[in-house]
Design a protein around this nucleic acid. Sequence first.
DNA 1: GGCTCCAGAATTGGATCCAATAATGGATCC
DNA 2: GGATCCATTATTGGATCCAATTCTGGAGCC
Lengths: 230, 230
Amino acid sequence: MAGTEQAQSEQAGVVAKVVDELHAMLTSMELLPGQALRQEALAARLGVSRAPVREALRVLESEGILHYERNVGYTVKRLTVAEFEQTYLMRRALESEVLRALPPLTEAQLGQLDQVNQQIERAATLSDMVTVHRLNDEFHFLVFQASGLDLVVDELRRIWKLSNSYRSAYLLHDRGARQRIVHEHGAMIEALRHGDSEQLIALMDNHRVGTSTQVGVLLAGSTDLESPSS
Amino acid sequence: MAGTEQAQSEQAGVVAKVVDELHAMLTSMELLPGQALRQEALAARLGVSRAPVREALRVLESEGILHYERNVGYTVKRLTVAEFEQTYLMRRALESEVLRALPPLTEAQLGQLDQVNQQIERAATLSDMVTVHRLNDEFHFLVFQASGLDLVVDELRRIWKLSNSYRSAYLLHDRGARQRIVHEHGAMIEALRHGDSEQLIALMDNHRVGTSTQVGVLLAGSTDLESPSS
DNA sequence: GGCTCCAGAATTGGATCCAATAATGGATCC
DNA sequence: GGATCCATTATTGGATCCAATTCTGGAGCC
């Protein structure tokens, strides 16, 4: 169960691959907020033509991740502090609903969560922040998906992606966060094991405000994450 | 202020126009859930080439409105009762947050809301349900936008679109709804005038459950809205 | 009569091509 | 020296083209 990648290189179409690749470049901070995206450069970088790149860029724009200006092109959208806080407002509102709808988890599901959390700990000790980020997402969405509220989960997936760059920056910046995350996940697993929804919601709220306020000060401090041109 | 159209035919790019056109065809029920979309037919219908049509279709897929299968094409996604209810769950969660964040509205804003509501009443007496639908959306989003929570409002816009087809069917089906909507909007304007957020939230909740349960039975009854091929 | 298989048609997927628009940089004028 | 204007360049926008895949329908077989 180690390779739960989104690497759908198989049989999935070039634009889907480009979309995934762009998301990966975003969370790995290869693309930074404010940066301009050149269609031809991307096409060359990914070994495809401009046509699928354009479709993929259009998708990311509709997801609210890229900014688009006609005859000018796409840039990575920059979030203000207020906008970043809105993503966390939405997360709290929707995640609470999802957690409240959670049925009792099976032992297998709980074991999987524990396993992912151990993988996070391992990646954290190696300072592999990209992997930490990816596994952290996987942990939370394993929980969300157990609710069966697939449309809400889809929406949450979209909302999470809005702040990916900033959460990556946070993970890279705050060394203490890594241990804290693993520990808090452990507490969540306990709450899930006992079917204590309200406790779980409280833990998640706390989990969120931790990173939220941290990223807030990070955003308020240095005017923004800046971007050079390649 | 009558022509608050989304008709950005001006200077806005062909794909944006196609995206809008598709949304319009969806709410006007020219496109029905389950229906397949032929790229070439759409291109001919809209007087453009297939390239921008494909980008637009990809956008609607990423919005969760269309279903896509590689080498097969796009179809209008069908919502199950459970999925439809999830859209209303999300609306309640997010709209409550937005309404709670609402500042006192200006007299001008209140007047505009009243004016839109009167237009709804007029369109309703003419049984112009497409216009009723459009103006109803405009009414609610005028309120939402006053919150200044632009990212949340964007998200709500997306969520509303998920159920457009079904809400149109409901409006067309239930003759009583038209008067009820206008009346309830009036009560909302009153609550807004007095700055009574909690009352407003209660009214909105009631407003939603009305149409929600109605569409629910409509969906549970006839297996689904069906679609012929043109 | 019904099922299987194959060939033709229809449709999508990706690449390429040309026009239109905006960014760039240098020459000219004040 | 600095600002303005214009030609050049770079980049995007939309249309067209060809290959690959799926759907359709009819012939043949059981």
